[in-house]
Design a binder for these strands. Sequence first.
DNA 1: ATTAAAAATGAGAACGTTTTCAATGGAGGA
DNA 2: TCCTCCATTGAAAACGTTCTCATTTTTAAT
Lengths: 331, 331
Amino acid sequence: MASTILDVARLCGYSKATVSRAFASPEQVTEKTRQKVYEAARALNYTPDAIARAMVRGRTDNIGFVIYEKQYPVVLNPFYSPIFESVLQTCAHKGYSLFISSDRDLRLPNGQTCVKKQMDGIILAGQSDAQMVMDLRRQNMPVVVLNNALDVDDLLCITTDQYGGALLAMRHLTERGHRKIGLIAGAFSPHVYTSRYNGYCDVLREIGETIDLRFVQTIDPTAEQAMQCASMMLSLPDRPTAIFCTNDTIAIGTMKAALRAGLRIPQDLSIIGFDDSEISHLVEPELTTVRVDKAAMGRIAAERLIAQIEGEPPQKQVIQTPIELVVRQST
Amino acid sequence: MASTILDVARLCGYSKATVSRAFASPEQVTEKTRQKVYEAARALNYTPDAIARAMVRGRTDNIGFVIYEKQYPVVLNPFYSPIFESVLQTCAHKGYSLFISSDRDLRLPNGQTCVKKQMDGIILAGQSDAQMVMDLRRQNMPVVVLNNALDVDDLLCITTDQYGGALLAMRHLTERGHRKIGLIAGAFSPHVYTSRYNGYCDVLREIGETIDLRFVQTIDPTAEQAMQCASMMLSLPDRPTAIFCTNDTIAIGTMKAALRAGLRIPQDLSIIGFDDSEISHLVEPELTTVRVDKAAMGRIAAERLIAQIEGEPPQKQVIQTPIELVVRQST
DNA sequence: ATTAAAAATGAGAACGTTTTCAATGGAGGA
DNA sequence: TCCTCCATTGAAAACGTTCTCATTTTTAAT
């Protein structure tokens, strides 16, 4: 039904090769020719078929943003939204389009058609694992890992200074005199989880405190879970005077639990979050947190992936975007 | 480099037609054959090429989610995130993948390759316009419009009961005795803006109040703008006792302005939002708002678009998902 | 055992481009 | 005017599938 390059060729009297060139590489064609071709194309309402083009060129100019399923729903996730946005912008700027899918699409049962081939490369975000990366590699698919650090040859991982951020947060609390500090940690990927956890432990050790396991909890990173967890922790007779929450959503939940228990923030309880999500400056009191440069993470991931697609050899590297303490009202 | 259907055919001794069937329609092939084919495929690390498949079938099993640019950044937008998520889930469930792009991709200058052809249909979200829809139609592209109502033949629009929601919100305020009610309205699409605005005016008329233009403001829907706007409105000597904000982000900004001005919520000022975004139950006090069924919007849009793709004739219709008042602590 | 019907398989065209290689035409230099 | 060279154009192969149609094999019925 839709017109093809052949229709245009017939109408303007050139061969399809020339029509193709008029669109794909106009510099190879006379100005006069180009005009005639475009005119015919307009008359026929013709647009080059991206699929046919991809077929012969062997590339689609598409990038896949793959969300690791355990982390579903991801777009809702205030941490990933800005990253995603940044990836989208960078891709658009470089002429790539963006494909979204969950890891499910990549692990279809034996033989099912797989989305893979419609992408020139993949950004693997979230709780990715080495096996998945290797599988993709076996299909010659360039991969970049986002917000995780995996031990795979020639693999680029973009993450942030998890450990440094945790140190920053904890030292901020200890500098304000806190010694009994709780930890409410989200069950993130091992990389994220352990780095932040280690930061917590190491700072406590620095000030000579032992780790009281009643003050250390791991939960699903939702505000509801955090509220529940925090109200239990805060009802202990010797409750902590500050709590380090490993993301802002958890911190918000903790904050609500504290306010409902009649505690004043920061006078009775200090709370510090992680990520500097949108929400952290929307609540009252505003949340002190560790800023992660999400825009940079997305941008770097997209840029480096595109570089790989365009021929740059991949090399094993972990890029850590810098973190920054944002002091607001909750500490 | 990567192996093709022909390699598999050679290895397992069948023709490529049979290999193709083993993957695309296994029921047309003996169990024994299927196993042999799969085995060969696994040995060769073969996956069907989605592009070649799309080429010959004339469909890609991809759906485009197109973000109308004025609304950038969209994924960050707490209103669109859950819709997007719902679309993603529905698509995955029906075997479609999701493509993201801004309207810029669709309006490339004459002749540029266009992403269009890689999608079987498009969900146009945000401030879409009739022209764009017609352009897509001319290319035989099925379209569904989300969160807008456009007057185009045979076009399905999914929106929510904007006017009803505004009535609900305003009557909730008047029932609690408020007569001087402010409006802080976001500059959304005409459909959304005027419906909500009309609801505001009509309820004021019902109770015999005239509309005081000092209490009616239109702003960019950010918390910062809202804060600024609200603090001006609240500094008027005869300030309103309640404010209807046309989305939750605006409501949060208004809330912050009120708290900073030393007003108690809801005793000194009632605030009601619109959308029931995630954030509305994370702030303290929790926000009274009008719930929009975003999951339903996304699901319906995806389902109906897919139905159209699969042959159902499109018909002109505006589907309004129901709204619901969620009374929390801010009123 | 024979035959009709049904199921499984194979051959090859088709999908709409890009690209290589060859051919053509025109400009500029002798 | 002739020749060389370069820019422009055309012919046709190639990309990796699906699907139609024809052929072969299997199944079921007599």
